[in-house]
């Protein structure tokens, strides 16, 4: 891990100690931001760990816990809300047996994420399965997509 982190730090040399850029690379590489990585970076760069955690917890796309192999993002934008995305989310959570107050299946296969707007309000409600966008999503089409992903993995 140290080697990888060192490489990531080197990539960011010219960004004026931009913690956001650095953490984005860490997140991209590991899929989340491991606590150990933060402590290592804190020692290596002589920046208090609290500043890393401060930034990491501020932005919605940084995660301190491991994520599922597949990410199901369901849009919670206004247009999607009006067209019933709340119901869609609660039904998907129920179908995947994700415990309340959590967003990831215990076997780390799926993570359900609520996002604010995908930018495709014209085809609300929208779900994004990994990189594939599903427009006019229904429980049926989303669950079908999830089954497809399961088959592939």
């Amino acid at each position: 891990m140290e080697k990888t982190l060192q490489a990531l730090v080197d990539e960011c040399r010219d960004t004026r100690g931009n913690i956001v850029s650095l953490l984005r690379r860490v997140e991209d590489h590991f899929g989340f931001i491991p606590e150990d990585a933060v402590y290592w970076l804190s020692r290596a760069l002589d920046i208090p760990a609290s500043r890393f955690f401060g930034v990491a917890t501020f932005y919605s796309q940084f995660h301190l816990k491991p994520r599922g192999r597949h990410t199901i993002r369901i849009c919670r934008g206004t247009a999607c809300h009006v067209k019933g995305s709340e119901k869609l989310i609660s039904r998907v959570l129920m179908e995947l047996d994700i415990p309340p107050d959590d967003d990831t299946t215990p076997d780390l296969t799926f993570t359900i994420e609520k996002i604010n707007c995908v930018g495709a309000c014209g085809i609300a409600p929208v779900a994004v399965l990994d990189d594939e966008i599903v427009g006019n999503a229904t429980l049926h089409t989303v669950l079908n997509g999830i089954r497809e992903l399961k088959k592939r993995s």
Partner: peptide, 12 residues
Amino acid sequence: NESDPGAFMDTS
């Protein structure tokens, strides 16, 4: 940083 849920002009 278009984040308004329900807006997609800037993205488009």
